[in-house]
Amino acid sequence: MARTISYREAINEALAQEMERDGSVIVMGEDNAGGAGGSGAEDAWGGVLGVTKGLYHRFPGRVLDTPISESAFVGAAIGAATRGMRPVAELMFIDFMGVCFDQIFNQAAKFRYMFGGKAQTPVVIRTMYGAGLRAAAQHSQALYPIFTHIPGLKVAVPSSPYEAKGLLIQSIRDNDPVIFCEHKALYDATGDVPEDSYTIPFGEANVVRDGDDVTVVAIGRMVSVAEEAAKALSSSGIEVEIVDPRTTSPLDTETILESVENTGRLVVVDEASPRCNLATDISALVAREAFGSLRAPVEMVTAPHTPVPFSDALEDLYIPDAQRVANAVKSVAEWKR
């Protein structure tokens, strides 16, 4: 039965349902049980933000705490995936990719191709990204474009509880390595989520809102920012169509192009730093494939090319907000040659 639950609960439910369904699904990460070897509860934390809470006792032996050794345990998840398991490893913050990236992009991503199509590596790496929690430069980045760049990896960036559950179940059932990027500011966001298990196929964008004036492609947390902007713009007579790609690899180029062919105007909203991010990628796509439909230059709303600042005064300026999105939409809507 559909009910309103949080993004965190949706992820937990997806893990629980898949662990229930398939004994090869295991969960591992720092403090994923939380309390291994301590004098208190063995499942004290359930992950640093409580996402895996409750799974430890429900699935004995299948929720593994790890030392703070990202290379070793992310690599172990990958190795186990080549031997019949479907591990879900939690890389606490996406920023920590720096201490285990080799295992992800040189190992997991390459196996299938490098071994002549004879390997499959059904591993999921869940990781928390994004700014907004005053977590500063090493715990706030939106690094999904880096993973998106790597052939062999799939990248999901769920924008809502519904997306989180369906995309995570798809990630676990998928036979390729998936980087599953959870925005830390969305964990308490709520939405309607069916109780049944379900999947959302990769490479299928969701049209969050129909509109004929301007297409806004927004990723992850930026979807709700775009919705806020769209609401305000609607009252001033500009109807925005919001496209949420849901996965950045594969990318549903067809839905983006279809929308731009209808509106003739595009704004891409991406929380990542501005060079070689999804905004530039999608802009290039549209410039190449839908040039004839464009009636205004493409606008990009992104973070600035800086590390994520700590002070709230600065971080609030760093993160794209509804006002900036609205301004960008207006500028393309009103653009005259």
Binding site: Y162, G166, P194, D196, Y198, T199, I200, N206, V207, D210
Partner: peptide, 17 residues
Amino acid sequence: VTRKLADDLMKYKRLDG
């Protein structure tokens, strides 16, 4: 036949079973 109608039906069709 709105996009929303099709989306909702797909949501249903994607439930396990």
